[in-house]
């Protein structure tokens, strides 16, 4: 179908965009890559009166390291993040997450900030950012806020951003020294939205896990941190049994929504397997892995 009628604005600066959002925020929408919003318009599931197209705002795009942290402009295309050597070398969890996001044609337009703002619980980047303890920087005429990923997602397609706010950047701390990482997911077809998945960051001293972050994909109405699994891991020895036990803990509290592609029960089982594999894979990638995890590789995606 065709999109409904709207007023189109294409500001050239963040300042202009914030002016427009201050006036039209309530009945308007920011247009970034359009890869989620335009389908909603074409289906007439969204009827904004104003579209504020931020694609001409150069200052919103770019990837840079800033005092050990990574700063990603909200308008940075997913394909640009995917190809960044800086990110692959230092934030490889993000690169691995992107390998599961849609298709090249979508990533060429789709933006990093758009994926976060859209807040689909089956989207990979929000889960990777949540597991990475990232902050989202949002701006309005009223000022700038830094919202941590744990406080950002409210429910399906809903965040704590106000209608007059524009996301300007994502700020990601460096993973712990020598950390192991893994993003795993299962989808019916490569590039489709996942039925379930996990993002894991681990650090260890010897065999003992010193920190663990476990993010769950498509497990709840928001991206989720599996606190139970993290508790089970930290302070314990990394082992096959430990990975299995932590994966069990990860799905204890979840009740994923079932649909024609998989019942709630099926998804729960699937997510448990994805978590276990992600922990194994991440442990196998720890600096100086003497744990033998890399031999069985964790397998699967």
């Amino acid at each position: 179908m065709k999109p409904p009628v709207f007023d189109y604005h294409d500001p050239a600066t963040v300042e202009e965009a914030l002016d427009l959002l201050a006036v039209h925020g309530d009945d308007g929408k920011v247009l970034a890559g359009g890869q989620s919003l335009v389908p909603l318009l074409n289906f007439r599931l969204a009827h904004p009166e104003h579209l504020i197209d931020v694609n001409n705002i150069g200052e919103l795009s770019g990837i840079k390291r800033d005092g050990g942290r990574l700063r990603i402009g909200a308008l940075t295309r997913q394909s640009m993040l995917e190809r960044s050597a800086l990110v692959a070398d230092n934030w490889p969890l993000l690169t691995e997450a992107l390998s599961f996001v849609a298709h090249a044609q979508i990533r060429n337009r789709g933006t990093v900030g758009g994926s976060v703002a859209h807040a689909d619980p089956a989207a990979e980047l929000p889960v990777a950012f949540l597991a990475s303890d990232a902050d989202f920087i949002v701006k309005s005429k009223r000022g700038e806020r830094r919202i941590s990923a744990v406080d950002f997602f409210v429910t399906h397609l809903t965040t704590t951003m106000e209608p007059d706010e524009l996301m300007v950047a994502i700020d990601v701390p460096a993973p712990p020294e020598g950390a192991g990482y893994a993003f795993t997911e299962f989808a019916r077809r490569h590039g489709d939205f996942a039925l379930g998945g996990a993002a894991v960051l681990l650090a260890a001293e010897g065999r003992t896990c010193t920190s663990a972050a476990v993010g769950l994909l498509a497990a709840a109405p928001t991206p989720l941190r599996a606190a139970g699994a993290e508790e089970a891991l930290v302070g314990s020895e990394l082992s096959q049994d430990g990975a299995e036990a932590a994966a069990k803990r990860a799905v204890e509290q979840i009740d994923p929504t079932g649909d024609i592609h998989g019942s709630s029960e099926y998804r729960k089982g699937l997510i448990e397997v994805m978590v276990r594999r992600a922990i194994e894979k991440a442990a196998g990638r720890l600096d100086g892995d003497g744990l033998g995890f890399s031999r069985n590789g964790g397998g699967g995606r």
Binding site: G34, Q35, N55, Q105, N108, R109
Partner: peptide
């Protein structure tokens, strides 16, 4: 130069 969906872009863009 990059493949994209023309149904998800507006002509004005």
């Amino acid at each position: 130069g990059d493949p994209v969906r023309s149904c998800l872009m507006f002509a004005v863009q």
